[in-house]
Amino acid sequence: MNLASYRKKSPWILHYNAGGCNGCDIEILACLSPKYDIERFGMINTGNPKQSDILLVTGPVTKRSRERLVEIYAQMPEPKVVIACGACASTGGVFRGMYNCEGGIDQYIPVDVYVCGCGTRPEQIIDGVVQALGILETKTKELEESVRLKKETVKEGKQINRRNIADQVKPAMI
């Protein structure tokens, strides 16, 4: 097994409340509990952004929490997936247009999976997280792909540019 399969079999979750009503947060907590048992996918809740692969965000972004949200996102190592949990994290929901709120977290950080509902059910959260695992896998592949292999071969006249190593590798692959 290589690193990619570890990542897929045991993604770690980071949870941040960006101003929601706690409803979705307690459902995330319920996911960790024995009935829904998200640990069967190898997920555990960590408090450390530097160790986690999946960021679960709830709540519309309030003006005070947005800096922390972006900070946490920036601290997470690549590849990372962001899940917006609940109606208000996806669009702002009922809080849209209130003076201290932004409409949804995708105004600040890129979101991969949107989970709907106010509040979301644990089944929906688990479904979203499993979808996120697929996205995590493709992201990992994209990240690990060699950039050089994709390069167009450069020819100057009839001569191959020796400095471009990609040219040497490519014929060997075919």
Partner: peptide, 30 residues
């Protein structure tokens, strides 16, 4: 005060009084 959203102000301007009972439910999920 990290999660101040401004619900009170919205309840007095954006929503009608019958709708407010659904909005204040979103003050706290617990």
């Amino acid at each position: 005060y990290y999660v101040h959203r401004g619900i009170e102000q919205a309840c007095c301007s954006k929503f009608k009084f019958r709708q407010v009972s659904f909005v204040v439910g979103r003050v706290c999920g617990l």
